[in-house]
């Protein structure tokens, strides 16, 4: 892909070209380290409470594979498209960054729509935050992830809009890079949610 003429002065790996950019990237990795502990604590809580249904619906009765599989497929695809955006960033191609991020955002919205549908459905089945310890743990863990997805969508849209005016610079490049990093992180968290919450919740009855 040819380098856009307006970006001719932009250095390679523009996200790391300034000390501010380097600081942001390091700081963000550290932040993700903290987020790992955050989700780790939520997972531990969920695992401890997932069989405590208190007479309410169990995970085996609730979970529906096609819906969750579709959500997983959508989110993992969006992870790939966010990588494409980073690749476009390294080619200094703002147009392709915008294209890939738009696809990422649309997939993210699709995922979120499925999750909201899923939650509404569960509430109708009598599975609420106040039903049981399982209900509290489920909505907190999965909801925390959903909240992260929603924040990511808003953040990426904001970056996209402001980049229309600002272009791709050594100031905006780290922001795109970090948004992509963040998006990856919440996808990785989802892989664990899919495994621990849904797959483990669908097999067998009581475990351990």
């Amino acid at each position: 892909m040819a380098t856009h003429h307006a970006n001719a002065v932009l250095p390679d790996e523009p996200e790391k070209a300034t000390l501010e950019g380097k600081n942001k990237i390091l700081g963000f990795w550290l932040f993700l380290g903290g987020e790992t502990v955050l989700f780790g604590s939520l997972f531990a809580t969920f695992i401890a409470l997932r069989d405590q249904v208190n007479g309410g619906p169990t995970s085996q009765q609730l979970f529906d594979m096609p819906l969750v599989a579709a959500a997983t497929l959508i989110l993992l695809t969006s992870s790939m498209t966010s990588v494409m955006a980073t690749l476009a960033l390294h080619k200094k191609n703002l147009k392709m960054i915008q294209v890939w991020l738009t696809i990422t955002v649309l997939l993210g919205i699709g995922f979120l729509a499925l999750e909201i549908y899923e939650f509404v459905h569960y509430v109708h089945e009598g599975h609420k935050i106040s039903t049981s310890a399982f209900g509290s743990a489920f909505y907190t863990l999965v909801g925390f992830h959903g909240g992260h997805v929603a924040f990511g969508i808003l953040w990426i849209i904001l970056l996209q809009l402001s980049a229309v005016k600002k272009g791709l610079t050594v100031v905006t490049a780290p922001k795109f890079y970090l948004a992509s990093l963040y998006w990856h992180f919440i996808d990785v968290v989802w892989v664990f949610i899919f495994t621990v919450v849904y797959l483990m919740g669908m097999i067998g009855g009581k475990v351990g």
Partner: peptide, 13 residues
Amino acid sequence: FGGNFFNPDAGGN
């Protein structure tokens, strides 16, 4: 918000 994480009556711990 009516959670039950620590409410032993509803399976909390």
